[in-house]
Write a protein that binds this DNA or RNA. Structure first.
Lengths: 182, 182
DNA sequence: TGAAAGTCTAAACAAATGTTATCGTACAGT
DNA sequence: ACTGTACGATAACATTTGTTTAGACTTTCA
């Protein structure tokens, strides 16, 4: 937060006193679909994946979130609509839980609260924009080759079938791509 | 703006006095790649497409923007980086041009300027999030069938090959999909 | 108003990607 | 340490999607 906005120690303490720390076990579900998300998480340590389950029951990995990142179904958090996403810890993961009440308190009461909200939304917009640029102007192979730019060390932390899902291809096909580039 | 934030007539006038109206002809280029975008456009009338040209020279349509919408390479506008995108008017299009100076003036001087910035960023984030949800959990056919939810009447306003490009498929394949659903 | 350019469909073929099944290995939980 | 489960590679085959080309039709604009 100090990197984003000018904030006094008092403000920071008031804000953080409304949050709570929480630890999830490996493979534990953090947030369920069909429920209005009322929290934003900040990852202290660990790895979270965001996925969507389609009508046929297939899981699609939409995002990985690493240390020092905010994560939530931000879209439906803002819209106060039931989530489509599942958030799942891929490792033992420690987070700071920011409830909606704290966020809204921040917008109102922090000197630069609205600015922080704007910067966070802008940050995620840029991420999403890059995602779309990549998806539509590059091949799966090219996307695979640069995934560590966005998620360093992901190959050692997430199973390959989830990476394939993130890239929008099947695990079998990813295995082929890897082979052909050797 | 009045729909987003509380703003007085004086504030609104001060803000809008820093903008200018402009009209582009059909097929005219509005914004070039490799240039830092320093404007946000608000569409009064017309239709704009946003596209990216890849290394092989292929054009990929990433977005259509309709009346009453803001449009720009918002990502690179914020980052003050040279754009990857081309903005092109598909019809004779009238816009309000908001230069960077006006936007930044708004953040600083409008009572709820930062809030407006947050809401705009959030709005686009939600749009992008839906785009990603759609892309990764639905087939091209399913995406085609619902494109008018996002871009009403687009079939009468944009050529089919641009719609195909937006969907991430070739025009030939789109033609096939249409045939098979008859 | 006529030529040129753009647009959509269609067919045949090619390439990319998905599906299913099998196997060996690694790993997690008891 | 044992055992069931998850994981990744691979092969054979199926399906989807892309490529190229051609033709008919429409739109643009000089």
């Amino acid at each position: 937060m100090k990197q984003m906005i000018a904030i006094s120690e008092d403000e920071l303490n008031d804000f953080l006193s409304q949050s709570v720390s929480k630890t999830f076990k490996r493979n534990e579900t953090i947030s369920q679909p069909n429920v209005v998300p009322n929290e934003i998480f900040f990852i202290i340590k660990g790895l979270i994946r965001v996925m969507i389950t389609d009508n046929e029951g297939n899981e699609h990995t939409v995002h990985f979130a690493l240390e020092n990142q905010f994560i939530s179904d931000y879209s439906n958090f803002m819209q106060k609509q039931p989530s489509f996403y599942t958030l799942q810890a891929l490792e033992e993961t420690q987070v700071v839980v920011l409830p909606r009440s704290a966020i809204e308190w921040g917008y109102k009461n922090l000197q630069e609260g609205e600015k922080m909200g704007r910067l966070i939304a802008e940050y995620y917009f840029i991420y999403q924009d890059n995602r779309i640029k990549n998806t539509f102007s590059r091949t799966p192979k090219q996307r695979y080759d640069t995934i560590t730019d966005v998620f360093p060390n992901i190959h050692n932390r997430a199973p390959q079938h989830m990476i394939a899902s993130y890239l929008g291809i099947t695990p079998v096909h990813l295995s082929r791509l890897k082979k052909s580039s050797r």
